[in-house]
Every structure is written in structure tokens, then in C-alpha cells.
Design a protein around this nucleic acid. Structure first.
Lengths: 213, 213
DNA sequence: TCTTAACTACACCGAGCTGTGTACGTAACC
DNA sequence: GGTTACGTACACAGCTCGGTGTAGTTAAGA
């Protein structure tokens, strides 16, 4: 239970309740899951009264949706924007996950909530589509003959590694990266390592902030 | 609510309580998830009194574990044993999923239970390992230079397709199958379609009954 | 200083959950 | 027929959960 910053005098938790709630959500939903985290527990960790929590979020469902929207990942921070890498290197960099990556929170939410109509499930879907779109975009930059196909394939690999890591408790991203390398080489006609930041201006960036597994 | 078979006279649900409970678990855990299925609801569908349910299973956790153990899948029924296919065809057949395949119940259970020590989570792990082993075995028969690697890769593809299908609500197995074909071709030195049932007798079948996503 | 908005403490509600206690049918098999 | 194992009906204990009602406190800003 990390001692979140208290007010200057230390007597009160002070004004940033909403941020503290979201921050506690990040920790608890990841460590214990959404369904197994009660609002009482969450408020205790956030050092926020339950009343305040329900003034910021009308329901737990809304909090969960906002939690996903606000997800600020340690992983995949901005691989797609790294101009120091060739497009091919950027595609591969998407598979370099820090050792302790839990299950992608978007997959976890979709499974736990079990309702495709839930706002969080909808957002998870949007997010996954956006990631695939950025992979496709980068695949196009890298000169792939069928960028959509390669983008979708790489997205599937990431999700596979994520799911498998969770079930097996053993790192699967290296395996996924190895597959990715093969697919990329297969998808680019004459192995043509293009220049970095060779933006052929085909598509704008996806509408969703990038991050997460 | 499928009218499960009642006794000959129709007045009582009769003796097969345990089977009816497990059968109802299959349906409800798949359709509504484990956590969102209460024992009351489950007993109602199984047409079994709650008392009887708790005489067969000491706890819901035990029922969940048994549910996974008993999982009799529509999918992947016996691909590995089909001697009418070449090893290569058998590997590819593992990706032919019926249209309405929900999320692999093993992944779902691992995510929902969220406790790696839970018996069901342990079994899910064992199962996934067994599937990878059978894929490896078949890869070896197919003449792959590194069967372990190919087996693990194909297992990752299956899980990726499963997770992605769930989150996106759109079929991902064809994508996975396409990747599989590439990997298989890459992994077998001189494209050598061996004879069907070319059992080189390397390894016995995996200890876990095969099936499921 | 006064107003206002954010936050707090805490009791509480109703619902749903897993699991049990009790007393009672009913069918199979000797 | 009698015994035994299986199954039933149903109430209820004990808990957790999401969410609310109420009355009060604190801090920022005019």
C-alpha cells in the first residue's frame, strides 16, 4: 500500500481525488482483477472516501471504462513514433516487453466484464483496432506488399503472447518476436531496409493514444 | 434453457445429477462466465437441487476445476489422431475452428479466477502445455528442423486467435492459419510432404485429453 | 471574511453470493 | 419388503458487493 502523497500538512489527502482513484484502479485492477476489486478496497488504497468516488464516477462500470481510457502503459510507450528506428525495427520493437508485463488490460477487461456492450469492452475493441492500424501503417512504410495483412498478423502475435504469458506464467514475447521477424521478412518483397522516418504520407496516426500490450 | 432430458415418467430429474451439473456448467460458464454464474442459477438450469450439487462438489471452485477437466470440446476434436492427414495437414487442421467458438475456456478461466494457484488455473496451464507438446510432436513428424520451436509458435497462434476473436468479436483463426502455413513452410527444410501416418515413434501422446481451443 | 466546491466519516440498504441444516421423497437392489 | 443411496424442497446464515443518505469539515478564491 504505497503511501500516496498527502497534503502539505499531512492531515488530509486533499484535492486530487479523481487522479488518486484512477491511480489506485491501475494498481488494483491489474493486480487483483476488476471483479475481485471492491469499491471499498479501492477507496481505501486511493485514500478517498467512497462518497467522493461516487461523485467522480457514477458507477463502477464508468470507472472501469475510464480506467481503460486512461491507461498509461509502461509498455509500447511510443514505438510507433520513434524516428530513430527503421519501420522494420519499429515493428519488431513492439514485441520488446518489460519482463513483468501482466495480461494486456484490454483483453483482461473484455474477458472479465463478459459483455461486449460494456463501454470498457467497446473501448478495448477500439483500442485493439487502433493498434492494428498503426502496425499496418508502419508495415506500409516498411514496404510490405500487403500491409493490412501484416498489421493484423502482428497484432495477433502480440495478443497471443499476452494471453499465453498469463496462462503459462512464462514469457512468450520472445517467441512472438521470432515469428514477427519471419513474417516481416516474408512480407517485404526485396529485403529493402528503407530509410528511417520514410513517411510516405499514406495514413494519419490512429485516433487512440498508443500504449498497452 | 434447453429442456434437459427428464426421467422416463417425466416427474423427476432423476439420477444423473452430476452429469447435468457439469453439462450446465459448460453452457453457463461459456455464455456468462464463471464469476457471473451463481450456483443457484446453475442448479436451476441443471434441474438439480442445490443440496445435491454440494454433495457432488464440495465447493464452486472444485466444480470449476472439474468443469475444465471434463471439457469436451466441439473444436479440435481429434486432429492429432487423424491418420488420414499428413502431419502438415494435421498442424493446419488445428486452426479450423467452427464459426461460433467462444474464448478458449482455459484462458477464460485463468483470467477470471485470477489466481495461478487455483486448481483450475493449474489445469489450464497443464492443458496448454500438453497442446504445445502435441503440436511439437506433430511438427517433428512433419520433419521440422526445430519441432519444439514450431510447436510453441503454433500454440501461440492459437491462443492469439482465441483472445483476439473474443476482444474484437470477429473471427481471427483464418489469420492465424495463414501465419501457421508460413511458419510450417519455413520450418521444414526441403518442402517434403511426408506420407500420412508417418509415425517415427518419437514421443507418446500427451497425457491430457486433447480438445478445446 | 464569506462563499463555494471539494472532500470526509459513517451508517445503511438491498441484492446477490457461497454454502449449510433439516426433514422429506423416491428409486434401485438385495 | 427393507435398506441404502441418491435426490428434493426450502429456509437461512454469513458475507461481500455496489451504491446512497446525511451531516459535517476543509481549503481556495473573491
Amino acid at each position: 500500500m504505497t503511501e500516496l502523497e498527502k497534503g502539505p500538512q499531512g492531515r488530509r489527502r486533499g484535492r486530487g481525488a479523481r487522479e488518486r482513484i484512477l491511480s489506485a484502479s491501475q494498481q488494483l485492477f491489474r493486480d487483483h482483477g476488476i471483479n475481485r476489486t471492491g469499491m471499498d478496497q479501492l477507496c481505501a488504497v486511493a485514500q478517498v472516501s467512497k462518497r467522493t468516488a461516487y461523485q467522480h464516477f457514477t458507477s463502477k462500470d464508468e470507472l472501469v471504462a475510464e480506467y481503460l481510457r486512461r491507461f498509461d502503459p509502461d509498455v509500447m510507450p511510443g514505438v510507433f513514433d520513434r524516428t530513430d528506428l527503421t519501420p522494420r525495427e519499429r515493428l519488431l520493437a513492439a514485441f520488446e516487453m518489460p519482463a513483468s508485463t501482466p495480461l494486456c488490460p484490454y483483453i483482461a477487461a473484455a474477458v472479465e466484464l463478459h459483455d461486449p456492450q460494456h463501454p470498457a469492452s467497446r473501448y478495448a475493441r477500439d483500442y485493439k483496432i487502433a493498434i492494428a492500424a498503426r502496425l499496418t501503417e508502419t508495415a506500409r512504410e516498411a514496404g510490405a506488399t500487403n500491409p493490412e495483412q501484416l498489421g493484423e498478423q502482428l497484432a495477433l502475435l502480440i495478443d497471443g503472447a499476452s494471453a499465453r504469458t498469463r496462462v503459462l506464467n512464462s514469457e512468450s514475447f520472445p517467441t512472438a518476436a521470432a515469428i514477427a521477424a519471419i513474417l516481416i521478412d516474408n512480407a517485404i518483397p526485396a529485403s529493402s531496409p528503407r530509410q528511417p522516418s520514410d513517411d510516405s504520407g499514406t495514413t494519419g496516426p490512429a485516433p487512440v493514444p498508443v500504449g498497452g500490450t
